[in-house]
């Protein structure tokens, strides 16, 4: 096929990429350009996360308490393990990718096919894990009350264990006025209904003497402040406004909403990179299978997609540190 020749018609032309500045081919050089600019984009996001975190340093959620779930182990608190698993998957898919590049240099088509295949599988597992983590985060687990000032109040029993709002809420029979377009401002939609209303949670809280409120502010030991029973009642009754279940862009039962915003944005942007990486890997994979690069006499395309794939892994190393560890 003519379309698969190695020549680009620019050989020997200085500005056509024929010479190889810095001994890197045109394609590789452009991939490095892209990687540098993309690295700056990601560092912009992570630096913005750092900015917001420093701004609310006394009330930022602890990642260990947020991401405690492992699939199929319901109710077993296991902080870190699942993210660690995801990290290993990504590092391992990087290894198979670099092995594919190495096999490409030696023109071993069969090996390239297999290593590319494993890389794609690794990428798919990673994106799937991330989707699961998002779903768990959005669903939430204990529920909380948000105050008029947008602060989060979580519930503990007197032993200091977290209590889900579903455990103590009293059902109050009430009719709910549904907002419809023809009797209100048309662009204001009906807000998402939570399982329990604030009044129900308040009634349940007042009826159970062993419940305490935990605020999102840290005390001098670096633990979230737990209020006494009297303070808790005053806080809930005077400041409480609505019930929060799980996290979205506006409310976050784990603490400051910005935490959820940055989580969705940064891991989402990274997940999008993994997703496109998997797509490009699949395209290159099929090109290897049908022998395009064998005919071209060079597996440099595998090397270029490899650069991108390793970059995605590199970004995850930083996201892992700054979102889950630090």
């Amino acid at each position: 096929m003519d379309t698969t020749v190695a020549k680009t018609g620019t050989e020997g032309k200085t500005w056509g990429g024929g010479n190889q500045p810095l001994n890197a081919s045109y394609g590789k050089m452009m991939m490095w350009f892209f990687i540098v600019s993309d690295a700056l984009t990601f560092s912009g996001f992570i630096a913005a996360y750092g900015f917001s975190r420093f701004k609310f340093i006394d009330a930022w959620p602890i990642a260990d308490e947020v991401f405690t779930h492992v699939p199929f182990l319901h109710g077993v608190p296991a902080p870190m393990y699942y993210v660690a698993f995801m990290t290993f998957i990504l590092i391992f898919s990087s290894v198979t990718m670099v092995l594919a590049v190495d096999a490409g240099h030696k023109m071993q088509q069969k090996k390239v096919i297999w290593y590319m295949f494993f890389t794609i599988i690794g990428g798919v597992i990673f994106v799937g894990s991330q989707a699961w983590e998002w779903a768990t985060f959005i669903k939430g687990d204990y529920g909380a009350v948000e105050t008029k000032g947008g602060k989060i109040l979580q519930f503990l029993d007197t032993d200091g264990k977290r209590v889900a709002i579903a455990e103590f809420t009293e059902k109050i029979p009430s009719a709910r006025d549904i907002h419809v377009e023809n009797n209100g401002i048309w662009y204001e939609a009906e807000p998402t209904a939570t399982t329990y209303s604030y009044e129900e949670v308040k009634a349940g809280f007042l009826a159970n003497d062993n419940l305490l409120v935990r605020t999102q502010y840290y005390d001098e030991n670096g633990e979230p402040t737990v209020l006494s029973r009297e303070e808790s009642i005053a806080k809930i009754v005077n400041d409480g406004k609505l019930v929060v279940e799980g996290a979205n862009l506006k409310h976050n039962e784990y603490g400051h909403p910005l935490f959820a915003d940055f989580f969705f944005f940064i891991t989402g942007f990274h997940g999008f990179h993994v997703f496109t990486g998997v797509l490009i890997n699949i395209i290159v994979f099929f090109n290897v299978v049908i022998g395009t690069y064998e005919r071209r006499g060079s597996y440099e395309m595998v090397e270029k997609v490899g650069l991108y794939w390793h970059f995605v892994d590199l970004v995850w190393v930083f996201v892992f540190t700054f979102f889950y560890l630090v």
């Binding site: 540098v36 690295a39 700056l40 560092s43 912009g44 630096a47 913005a48 750092g50 900015f51 917001s52 975190r53 420093f54 701004k55 609310f56 340093i57 006394d58």
Partner: peptide, 22 residues
Amino acid sequence: WTGVFLICYLILILLIEGDYIF
């Protein structure tokens, strides 16, 4: 060096600003 210089500068300036607002 492009990355290291720009990222260090960005982080330094944003973290100082964040701490100030705190």
